[in-house]
């Protein structure tokens, strides 16, 4: 166990937790188009996000032992566990984003630190700094084509790929966990901007916001 100072950002106190989009829902609303909608937007709020940095070999061993998923060594890859609830995305040759259900991040961090011991690594809990938006529906790709500079054609962006790219001038991680869904990991401070951009860009497809 390292001597790094850690703390659980989720407390038992009765302070209400709000998603980064709470303000946006109040201010911009959440259009519910119903069955005519060709694209659905859903925020998966308050998940556990960890940035794990270090050497791939040591981290892979620890992550496989703790999470049961192997660390993606190839650039722009995204791996998930069988349930699809836990994922690891390659961000750079020594940096990965681990997303787990909310509340699991601190136990996971602690167990990873125990496993890694004195290895050279860094784990940062960034759960409060970013949120995950999910796009589904037949027009999701069309919507992304208007918005991101990255080529999202299925031949170039297969399932299991994840890239960091520019989404409407904001830096965003774009991921494709399965055939139907696209995921956007956006900064908390950009969440309202991205949300309103998606409402505007999705208006022609009758964007439907699920809360």
């Amino acid at each position: 166990m390292s001597n790094a100072a850690t703390f659980d950002t989720r407390t038992d106190s009765a302070i209400p937790m709000e998603s980064p989009l709470a303000y946006s829902y109040r201010r911009s609303g959440a259009p519910a188009t119903g069955p005519a909608s060709r694209v659905t937007l859903r925020e998966r709020a308050l998940l556990g996000h960890l940035i794990v940095r270090g050497g791939a070999i040591a981290l892979d061993e620890a992550v496989r032992g703790v999470l049961g998923i192997s660390l993606p060594g190839q650039p722009q890859t995204l791996v998930q566990d069988a349930s699809g609830e836990r994922s690891i995305q390659w961000l750079s040759p020594d940096e990965w984003l681990v997303i787990v259900p909310g509340g699991e991040e601190f136990p996971l961090e602690t167990r990873l630190r125990e496993r890694l011991g004195s290895a050279h690594y860094a784990i940062s809990d960034v759960s409060g700094g970013q949120t995950l938006l999910e796009l589904a529906g037949e027009a999701a790709r069309e919507l992304l084509m208007k918005t991101v500079i990255y080529d999202v054609h299925p031949s170039h962006f297969p399932v299991g790929k994840g890239v960091t790219t520019v989404f409407a001038k904001a830096a965003t991680m774009l991921r494709r966990p399965d055939e139907e869904r696209w995921e956007l990991v956006v900064r908390r401070s950009f969440a309202d901007y991205c949300y309103r951009w998606l409402l505007d860009a999705g208006a022609e497809y009758g964007v439907n916001v699920e809360q």
């Binding site: 650039p75 722009q76 750079s92 040759p93 500079i149 990255y150 890239v163 790219t165 520019v166």
Partner: peptide, 9 residues
């Protein structure tokens, strides 16, 4: 490092 071509932006 990413092993692919990306936009200048």
């Amino acid at each position: 490092y990413c092993g692919e071509h990306r936009e200048e932006e």
